[in-house]
Amino acid sequence: MSDNVIIRTENLCKYYGDKIHALHNVTAEIQRGEVVVIIGPSGSGKSTFLRSLNLLETATSGKVFFEDVDITDPKVNINIHRQKMGMVFQQFNLFPHMTVLKNLTLAPMKLKKMSKADAEEMALTLLDRVGLKDRADAYPSQLSGGQKQRVAIVRALCMSPEVMLFDEPTSALDPEMVGEVLAVMKDLAKEGMTMVCVTHEMGFAKEVADRVIFMYDGEIEEVGTPDEIFNNPQSPKTPQFLKSIL
């Protein structure tokens, strides 16, 4: 196993009851510094797979290794590992009772024991990079969807994560706001952040992804570079899916 692997899953399965499976024997690797985009029809298990990487979803069987630690082992303190795995949600999930700045500084102050001044300084620097420094004192309800999602990305970044997980980050946005969020994600990718991203934005996948995973019916149907997946797919289901979303 190469040192460069940051997340590895082994035969991940998730069953609801006996018959319905959301995931079936999913084995995959994420390399450090890599941008992996997961695509697939709805119900194919791509979100379930992403959410089981930081154990928001507990798999029925199988293992998830993060930095060579089996985090599915119940003896492992998952909270420590989650600090290094930032996550961005479809519905943003900002904390509505806190200002933007508080949203950003809560976790660093509680978990990294940062001083308030240090945490705020870092938060404001990061906010500035996504162009929202002037909204630091606003409440989430006062922001547009695109702004909320940019704040949510910064919130995850404030923990200085090793990897960022994106769960359909642009699906809940108005079309005109998709661009601003994707731009932030592209910048992150350029800086060498390891990213795993479930999305329907094929443009983003083509442009930014190092590898694309195509999931179908709870299994990984095909993995390849964007060029391989989009221009020379091996599975007949891949072009079928790609055609359906155009």
């Binding site: 999930n93 976790a107 509680k110 978990l111």
Partner: peptide
């Protein structure tokens, strides 16, 4: 919303926090 708990946990906060 369950998303609030998930967001907190995803940052590394424990259940009580």
């Amino acid at each position: 919303n369950a998303g609030q708990m998930e967001a907190g946990r995803s940052l590394g906060l424990n259940y009580a926090q």
